[in-house]
Amino acid sequence: MKLVTDTGIVFVREMRPVIRDPFSLIFSLGQPLVFLALFGPLLTGVPGMEQAAGGSVWQWFVPGILIMIGLFGTSMSGANLLWEMQTGAHERLLVTPLNRAALLVGRALKEIAPLVVQAAIIVVCVMPFGFRLYPLGALAGMLLLAVFGVGIGALSYALAIAAKNREWLFYGVQQTLLFPLLILSGMMLPLESGPGWLRALSNFNPLTYIVDAERALFAGDFSQPSVWQGALAAAVLAAVGLAVGIRSMRGSSG
């Protein structure tokens, strides 16, 4: 019970600045929108793209962009904790009787809110350009994105605690992991036309399954095996993220 109450307290505390300053959400959409507007049109000319996409390139590209927001934005969220570790706010919270797991879970759950809002904005933006919305699939896709975001957020907070006062370490690790994960997931370009070794590597990337699932869901197709595979990958990622994150939080000394 205390875990739930305390998670609520931490969640509300984290949500306040987001609600007070919703424009920060829109500003951080800049990067994905640039990818949509400038990279998306390039895809139509890529050989083999049409059959990979199975019709509209947008239908193929947009779900990948949603996972990209989840990866880029959420993996940065540890920076907030890093900052609170420097100012002393994190230390103050550690001395309160707040449940240690709640200190992490409350933060990780908050990641859902900006993610879902941003994803909704993106979807609304591309609808006039021929993006077809399957409401039930889209809803399931948002849920998948939320679970993914919790996992990435929790890992980002764990990284912040491990880095502790060494910002370079946090950003170094985060930036180094970002692009391999991005490219090897087939988020930007289809992997089907890539060399065998690259496809083999991508099989070890949980994001590959999550991206595939997100595409199937946003196409309204629940029957593909990628749906349960992606759901499983996201669930495992969230579970591992939370476990690692809670462990880090218990060992944190401010």
């Binding site: 306040r16 600045p17 609170e84 420097q86 002393g88 103050r92």
Partner: peptide, 15 residues
């Protein structure tokens, strides 16, 4: 217990 640390306990983006 209560604790007032060396740093600032309040989060910068909070009211």
């Amino acid at each position: 217990i209560g604790y007032i640390g060396q740093g600032n306990g309040a989060g910068h983006s909070q009211r």
